[in-house]
Simulated scan of single mutants.
Amino acid sequence: MDLNQLIEDVSAALGFEDAQPLVQAGQKSVLTGTLSGAAAVAKIVVINPGPNGDITLERAHREVELLSAVDSERVVKVLTDAVEIGDPPTAVCWAEEYLDGDDLSNSLKRTWDELEVWSLLKDMSQALTACHELEVVHRDLSPANVRRLPGGHFVLMDPGLARHLEKTALTGAFQPGTPGWRSPEHVPGGDPIPASDIFALGILAFYALSGRFPIDPSGNPADYDRALVEQQAPGISTIVPGVSAELSDVIDTCLNRQPARRYLDGTEMSTFLSDMGANR
């Protein structure tokens, strides 16, 4: 598909102006520009013919539907409906608010201090609260899907693998997530729930402090799946001596192998952090 023609078609479909390519990865492209005079991004997903293309199209519509339903400053805002390009569709596009900053992939190349980790836990628990209150499980809380803003706050993005617990016919059941950032419930045969997002948030915090995964995803995928189900993640204080007891307790709770022993959802975790004064 010719990129210039695609940009022209998307701009016309969304009312998007001053479009410039920002990122292209696989089937997904991102443009920067303006919408109604405000900075925005346009996301484009190319649709290939066949059953896989139908799944991709459905997932894009689902992502926009879920984002439209969530109202939180800690979750990226969608600005338009998903619009299909062509008949049959060759692409689907939509606009989101423009966010300064970068995703966590780069900042996790260094170890963080405790204040940064507290901020991540607080902001992401609030973002998950907004999702979980709508019975939506994100299922892919990985570095690429969390943006760090210049002021230090964090915003949740791209619920493309999300599942609406009351609309399973629409969203399906098992989705793989991203290796390294999965919960025990992501293993084939499992069923991710709100507490699964909490586990993934615990992985982010653990990695930010230590520079390593609590459960090693390298090697044989079957071994990784088995370890997720059978092994308890090590306590963060055994990996990072000197971490405060309060932070250690929060991260270890997130990473409990048993879902019922974690914070059950974003609301419970956010309330706990607020009560303990973690908004420091």
Rank of each mutant, 00 (worst) to 15 (best):
E133M: 09
P259N: 02
S274V: 06
R261A: 11
I7Y: 02
S244C: 01
T80P: 10
S125C: 02
D9P: 00
S196T: 00
T238S: 15
I85W: 04
G33C: 01
T238P: 00
M157C: 13
V76T: 13
T171S: 15
N4K: 13
T32G: 11
Y263M: 06
V64W: 11
I251F: 06
P143L: 09
Y263V: 02
S196L: 02
I251M: 05
Q5P: 00
L67D: 10
D100T: 04
V155T: 13
A95V: 07
E114K: 05
P150M: 07
S36D: 15
R74L: 00
A169N: 11
L120H: 07
V92M: 01
S119I: 01
G190W: 04
A38R: 14
E8Y: 11
V243Q: 07
D81N: 13
L6D: 01
E133D: 15
S244H: 02
D102M: 08
A222D: 12
G160D: 14
A95Y: 03
S36H: 14
D71T: 12
V250N: 03
I251W: 03
L209R: 01
A130L: 03
T238H: 11
N220F: 08
V83E: 12
R148W: 06
T34K: 14
L57H: 09
E8M: 09
E133A: 08
I236A: 10
G235D: 13
V187I: 10
S210F: 04
D191K: 13
V187R: 09
A38P: 00
L141C: 09
S237A: 15
G211A: 11
I7D: 02
S196F: 02
A278F: 14
E246M: 07
E135R: 14
P159E: 10
A233D: 03
S244P: 07
A12M: 10
A169V: 11
I236Y: 09
N145S: 03
E246N: 12
